[in-house]
Amino acid sequence: MLNAFAVLIDGLVYAAYLFIVAIGLTLIFGVMKILNVAHGSFFTFGAYGAASAVGIYFNRGLPEAGGYLLMVVLAMALGLVLGLILERGIMRWVYGRDEVVMALVTYAAFLILEDVVILIWGPGSYAAYQPLLSAGNIEIGELILSNYDLGLIAVAAMLAAACYWGLKFTRYGRLLTAVIFDRETAAAFGINVRVVYTVTFVIGAMLGALGGAIMAPKIAVTLGIGVEVIVLAFAVVAIGGMGSIEGAFAGALIVGICRAATVHLFPQVELFVIYAVMALVLMIRPYGLFVRAQPRKI
């Protein structure tokens, strides 16, 4: 009983983390058909930005809420700048090329940005634990849960709701849906696809940076944190269906719960449970859970 509850809570916390890092990736893929490896860099910059913000703000006796806000704002501002630079400076020159070429361009950007991090912040690691520890914890039975983790679940749920609402009920969301569905027809109907691309890429970058900012207090912000995130986000997005928000939501939940159950029950297989789930889902549903097979063009 306790185990089931623990699995559920741990699964949800992990799913929240996965969803937050995967949503920007799936958005960019859905609209632009770019498998964005530089998503890891957005995460990294967000985390470093948040760590810097914590360094500036905390331990000065200022109200804590301001610190949370500064973390998020600084990280998202970094995401905005980075997204704009990448999209306007590099990506737009390769639109229309092979998907793998575009993915490789983002890989090149990722390599370069990894070293830009060293140039800006140096090779040492940063701590940003204050928000995590000051949030406190609650005891439920034998388990002690961190309020920050519970907050993470809430943030992920809100983010999911906001994305759903944004796509379904706002003008820009509908434009996006049109582009996702059929780029050429959308352009023929007068949608400025270029602007849509820029905005989407920047939003994706900001979401990636947000993921980094939210995770920063829980980890040591150090070199190489982006690499882990990329492949995790890929897995989640592939399970749910590339480019589908609902898919990312479902994918994160499935992976989160499966991983938590594995750690509690069979810790030996934790290392590849995510990939096993991914392979299994792709075997049964080759296009992921939430994407219908494309019609074949003759």
Partner: peptide, 22 residues
Amino acid sequence: DKALFPKLFAGEYGTEISTLLT
């Protein structure tokens, strides 16, 4: 009691901590 082996550089140990708390 428990022998846990999370992935290297995993970064997120919530599940492991729950397991240890129990």
